[in-house]
Design a protein around this nucleic acid. Structure first.
Lengths: 163, 163
DNA sequence: CCGCTTTACGGGTAACGTAACCATG
DNA sequence: CATGGTTACGTTACCCGTAAAGCGG
């Protein structure tokens, strides 16, 4: 009933993606045994079987597939929190927009145009060219893709999570 | 540059909400010193000052406010991952819908009506009454509010995060 | 001088790596 | 029989609590 740890989620995602404890351990830079134990403990903690494993095949269960998607989302949220906190503490925060998972990026130019009409918002250089370079990305993408436009007055506009 | 841990985020949120290390430690069921160390390590890890502290006052910095919001989002994502994995592994998964943070719940009946027209979806009992009981809640709410309708064919429809 | 945060130090728990075991195909 | 996941065990590292020190109002 206790809550999950980031380490558990990272290990789980590695195994779920590799479907092989050995390769997953190698990718994580660790030995197989602690990885195997961590997954076992995770399953006990959740009271749910995440993998069907024989010595020849590792397969995700239904609950495992659900957790894989949610674990990626949660890990992205943690990573984004750190990223944005570092950014907010930096000397010159800039306008920052993140789009994820099938959100229609086509509306963004209009939204930014509307933002640009705000008296407090100076039109930044390369505004439209920067914006047009932003494209939606899918949830399954491993590492966040950040694009920044040069509008130094706000820390960020929004973040949209779809999961 | 390493990533954050759930424990660090929980401790940070407690201090940020109490603005007092003593009360935060009490709320967390621990002593002040390890809490203080964890916050200090977190700040060093991020390279950002999160609190302005004198012996008489603890105050959030701008970066701290950013992290507070994102940390809540990330913690909710982790909690939701565990919750939904447990649910997916249970014997009889049900239709599950979560609404958060100012999402207009008024559209839900129409969406569920559309879902109900799917040949694979049987109309569950008390459908409309269950749905009408769902209301949006605000991001600041501490613990997730889950409402379940009785449609045993899907694990969940969606989760919407606005942050 | 009082309250609260921080540093110092010792103990316990938990994660890891190595080695041996076992099951499957 | 070979590949690969699991169990056993000793070690290391991290986190916590108690005690003492630093510092601001």
């Amino acid at each position: 009933m206790n809550d999950l740890e980031v380490r558990q989620l990272r290990y789980f995602v590695a195994v779920a993606e590799e479907l092989h404890f050995g390769r997953a351990a190698e990718r994580l830079g660790m030995a197989q045994p602690p990885l195997s134990r961590t997954i076992r403990d995770l399953e006990r903690q959740l009271g749910v079987t995440l993998f069907e494993r024989t010595t020849r095949q590792v397969k995700l269960t239904g609950a495992g597939e659900v957790l894989l998607r949610d674990a990626r989302t949660a890990l992205e949220a943690v990573t984004a929190a750190a990223h944005r906190a570092r950014h907010a503490g930096s000397a010159s925060p800039r306008l920052r927009i993140a789009l994820k998972a099938d959100i229609d990026g086509g509306l963004l130019p209009q939204i930014l145009d509307a933002y640009g009409t705000d008296p407090a918002a100076l039109p930044p250089p390369n505004w439209s060219s920067e914006v047009s370079a932003i494209s939606p990305r899918h949830c399954a993408t491993a590492s966040p893709m950040w694009r920044s436009c040069s509008a130094p007055w706000m820390t960020e506009v929004w973040t949209v999570n779809r999961c």
